[in-house]
Computed example of a mutant assay.
Amino acid sequence: MTSTTIAWRTVGSPVGRLLLASSPTGLVRVAFESESTDGWGTVLDALAETGATVTEDPTDATLAAAATQLDEYFAGTRRDFDLPLDRPDRTFRQHVQRYLGTIPYGRTTTYREVAEAVSNPKAVRAVGTACATNPLPVIVPCHRVLRTDGGLGGYLGGPDAKRFLLALESGH
């Protein structure tokens, strides 16, 4: 088995510093600074556990494109991301995460509605888990999924980041 290389870099954003990581296939991870209390070590270690060689590379083309598109998104000039994504997993969780990309900019849905849309209406909690473990937050818009009662629900970047993203997309 050949080892692949995962390149990474960090970027600033209105929701804090983000770590971006890509494989030769595409973007594999977007991480909020709050996910790692040890200067990105937790996130980088998890990437290395896949058997990949993880190296900082601010010149990686996929990472440069992701940084540009995130800047445009936060500036309000981009609604959809056009990036290659590395998502090899074919589990229910991945099925949900693929569906998340179909939720339009500025719109929200509920965990229950997502479960119904992926033909598993009883899997509301599993949908929540899929959103909570989304390796590509912001790019794959799990922030657009709310609790059935209209509450925010959880978010990997924290409730303030989720509120910010929803407000950005609603024009407020």
Results as ranks from 00 to 15, higher is better:
135 P>C: 04
103 I>K: 10
134 N>L: 08
20 L>F: 07
51 G>L: 13
61 A>D: 14
79 R>E: 14
122 K>L: 06
64 A>Y: 01
28 V>Y: 03
14 P>A: 06
7 A>H: 15
151 G>E: 07
118 V>W: 04
101 G>H: 03
121 P>Q: 08
142 C>K: 06
113 E>G: 08
51 G>T: 07
164 F>W: 13
80 D>T: 11
153 G>N: 11
35 E>C: 10
168 L>A: 13
106 G>Y: 06
106 G>T: 08
139 I>M: 07
106 G>Q: 07
19 L>A: 09
11 V>F: 09
43 V>N: 00
118 V>H: 12
155 Y>L: 07
148 T>A: 05
67 A>P: 02
136 L>W: 03
165 L>K: 09
151 G>V: 05
119 S>R: 11
35 E>T: 11
20 L>K: 03
48 A>S: 11
9 R>V: 10
98 R>E: 14
2 T>E: 07
13 S>Q: 04
168 L>H: 11
34 S>F: 03
143 H>I: 06
94 Q>I: 01
45 D>Q: 12
68 T>P: 05
146 L>Q: 08
73 Y>I: 06
54 V>A: 12
118 V>G: 07
71 D>V: 11
29 R>Q: 12
94 Q>N: 10
130 A>C: 11
76 G>Q: 03
23 S>F: 00
5 T>Q: 15
146 L>V: 06
5 T>C: 04
13 S>R: 07
146 L>C: 12
99 Y>W: 15
86 D>K: 06
110 T>H: 02
36 S>W: 03
152 L>T: 08
153 G>V: 15
130 A>V: 04
112 R>I: 00
37 T>C: 05
73 Y>S: 02
55 T>M: 09
135 P>V: 02
66 A>R: 00
106 G>H: 03
168 L>T: 09
77 T>H: 03
153 G>L: 08
166 L>M: 09
54 V>N: 13
134 N>I: 04
97 Q>T: 13
164 F>T: 10
172 H>R: 10
102 T>W: 07
171 G>W: 14
80 D>Q: 10
44 L>F: 08
93 R>C: 03
155 Y>M: 04
12 G>N: 14
154 G>K: 13
105 Y>M: 15
134 N>V: 07
44 L>E: 01
117 A>L: 06
112 R>K: 12
69 Q>A: 06
61 A>C: 05
157 G>E: 01
12 G>S: 15
64 A>F: 02
33 E>F: 12
140 V>C: 06
62 T>A: 09
4 T>E: 15
81 F>N: 06
96 V>F: 02
43 V>S: 04
161 A>V: 09
93 R>K: 14
134 N>D: 08
137 P>H: 05
65 A>L: 15
172 H>T: 13
66 A>M: 07
172 H>Y: 14
4 T>L: 08
160 D>T: 12
18 L>P: 01
152 L>M: 11
18 L>S: 01
79 R>W: 00
59 T>S: 12
70 L>C: 08
123 A>K: 08
106 G>D: 03
141 P>N: 01
122 K>G: 12
110 T>D: 02
162 K>P: 01
10 T>L: 03
68 T>L: 08
161 A>I: 10
